[in-house]
Design a protein around this nucleic acid. Structure first.
Lengths: 181, 181
DNA sequence: TGGGTCATGTAACCTGTTACATGATTAG
DNA sequence: CTAATCATGTAACAGGTTACATGACCCA
């Protein structure tokens, strides 16, 4: 239901610092979960208070100290509980700014909408391109993380990003056809 | 960026009470914006304090009193400002529970995931069916609201819901193929 | 010497969720 | 008689956003 479970999930791969998580989220998870650094640090603290993760400070030379978080047995339990409960119904709680913008489009400036829609299409096209070459990256990551079978799940998630971006592009084309006629 | 602008948008159609908005949102907007009654009432109050809407109490016989909100000139301005600013980049801030669930699927129970995925598919199929017969409804609404041209925008928004639901169904099928093999 | 990376955070605020409360009318 | 509809909200909490702060090291 929230970033908390995403963090627990990431920690099943290996112990990590908040900073590392931020990068992983930006690089690999951002197509289904977006988060700010400040929020990650706050949630980590909250999770530690709840006993779902534990931390140890690592002193480095030439670099600032870091705080590495590890999943506890309790955290693992909580993640599993969350995974096995119904997610399908929750997925219906959608909030989509772009659709809202279009829905009330009669009120706004049409040329502004057109250029927004073109920007939107471009963003989605870039994203599709990125995903098209991602399988090799996942191969490497799977080996690093030492969880055989994990790639299958990553690929399924990735496919969703791909299919959605494709649908977004189709939608943008349809809208542009209508708006520019 | 939030429910506030959705409310302002709705009020361009006609003055409404919080209760009415709740119904309109549930019936027509829920595929891109989900909201609870309690939040609607709170946002209305906040908007009134900011001078974006004004309210008048209407006394009814046989029914409880109601509070009808009207868009002010300021509110109209604010809506337009929002409409003409860039939405495309904001649309990238995605949060999708179902994809997260799949991404960390290796940890959870596979049969639980399969039944969630089937439920998810069913929900999306129902939704597609609803949308397929929606055009007539929009015709009637457009006449009621007396804003010629508004239907075009509604249809574009609707199409997005349709295309996304279709993409969701395709994704669910792909996942089920993989999970059940 | 200026920008990027490494690394951690705080404070205030805004937005969304859950649970609860009230009470009359109307249709089956 | 009972469930739904009409209609309004409050309180507490959880989750997300924005803006700011610090400071060293490394590369061009």
């Amino acid at each position: 239901m929230s970033l908390k479970h995403g963090i627990l999930g990431l920690l099943t791969y290996k112990p990590m610092t908040g900073y590392e998580m931020m990068k992983v989220i930006k690089e690999s998870l951002s197509f289904f979960w977006y988060a700010q650094t400040s929020q990650i640090y706050r949630e980590l603290e909250a999770l530690e208070k709840l006993g779902r993760v534990s931390s140890s400070r690592i002193i480095q030379t030439g670099k600032p100290d870091k705080k590495e978080y590890t999943l506890t047995a309790q955290g693992y339990e909580e993640l599993n509980r969350w995974l096995d409960e119904h997610t399908a119904l929750e997925a219906v709680k959608i909030r989509d700014v772009m659709t809202m913008r279009v829905f009330f489009g009669l009120e706004g400036d049409e040329s502004a909408l057109i250029s927004e829609m073109m920007a939107y299409k471009t963003l989605n096209q870039k994203f599709v391109q990125e995903l098209e070459s991602v399988e090799q990256v996942l191969d490497i990551r799977e080996k690093m993380i030492q969880k055989p079978g994990v790639k299958t799940y990553w690929m399924m998630a990735m496919r969703r990003g791909y299919l959605l971006a494709k649908a977004n592009i189709d939608w943008a084309d349809e809208c542009l056809d209508i708006l520019q006629s």
